[in-house]
């Protein structure tokens, strides 16, 4: 029997979803819905926008205003939605390739404007929907169908990237620690500005098989063991950091939000007329 969460927030007639058995996307999607539920947002006031890829199919299953756009462009469409109606809670759901390769330019500029959009990246380190090509977050040396001899590229640290670009709230969680991820997403939605939450998840079908990472359960176990809270991370030696990654809330600052600033500009003309 469907949970109350599913009943309240999912479009049951669009299920089952397209994700593979063992995929972490369901956990991350649930965390988003739980976060929205914890904030008590009206479904009519939430707009979820996505690009192209496995994760970008999530909005179709969710009972909000939902917009499934073109590859990499979710933030561009979302910017138009937010500008047109700043009262909407705009949430972007995207993948690692969608947000940081083809959509990388839109990501850094949305950060720079500090526009009030919450972006959740489902980072599975691979292009899943097209069948396992390496992405900007595939670790150097790992394999993909287009990196048959190991990936030569250095990989992005998306949280560092968005911090440099000007986002006001940045956190990284995992599909293993779903409760914590939920909290980061809820805090991100509450932040009046651009919020970036990286959710580390696993693709057993492509990334896992290509790189001999074991079963879906093994992969989630690895995520758990590799994730280190930021305070503990700082105490690790470079050697101890090998193969691990940092999680936590990395950045949370107040600064002018784009649509609010534009609203003030409009207001200044209204006053001028009186």
């Amino acid at each position: 029997m469907a949970s109350t969460l599913v009943k309240k927030y999912f479009r049951e007639d669009t299920l089952p979803h397209i994700w593979c058995p063992g995929c972490g996307n369901g956990i991350v999607t649930r965390a988003i819905v739980k976060a929205i539920d914890s904030l008590g947002l009206d479904k009519d006031d939430v707009c979820i926008v996505s690009g192209i890829g496995c994760s970008s199919r999530a909005p179709g299953y969710l009972d909000f205003n939902t917009l499934h756009t073109t590859h990499g462009r979710a933030l561009a469409f979302a910017t138009g939605v937010k500008m047109a109606n700043p009262k909407l809670n705009v949430i972007v759901v995207t993948g690692d390739g969608d947000s940081s390769a083809i959509g990388g330019n839109h990501l850094i500029h949305a950060c720079r404007r500090n526009i009030d959009i919450t972006t959740i990246v489902f980072n599975n380190n691979i292009y899943g929907m097209t069948g396992g090509q390496y992405s900007p977050t595939t670790p150097t040396g790992d394999k993909g169908t287009t990196a048959p001899y190991g990936n030569l590229d250095a990989n992005f640290d998306l949280c560092e990237l968005t911090k440099g670009a000007g986002a006001s709230y940045i956190a990284r969680g995992t599909a293993y620690a779903a409760k914590q991820l939920e909290k980061y997403i809820a805090d991100g939605i509450k932040n009046k500005g651009f919020s970036f939450i990286e959710a580390i998840t696993a693709c057993p079908t492509y990334y896992g098989r290509k790189n001999k990472k074991g079963s879906a359960v093994d992969m989630l176990q690895t995520v758990k063991e590799s994730a280190v809270m930021d305070k503990a991370w700082d105490k690790l030696t470079e050697e101890q950091k090998e193969g691990k990654f940092k999680i936590g809330k990395f950045h949370d600052v107040k600064k002018p939000e784009y649509t609010e600033q534009y609203g003030k500009l409009i207001e200044s003309f209204n006053k001028g007329e009186d």
Binding site: R73, G80, M83, A84
Partner: peptide, 26 residues
């Protein structure tokens, strides 16, 4: 802005088209 409308200079042509569609849907 004088009539309560919105203008935005986007980072490129692709996103300009995307934002235009997003605003129209809204």
């Amino acid at each position: 802005p004088k009539i309560g409308g919105k203008f935005i200079q986007m980072e490129d042509e692709i996103s300009s088209m995307g934002a235009t569609i997003g605003a129209s849907l809204t």
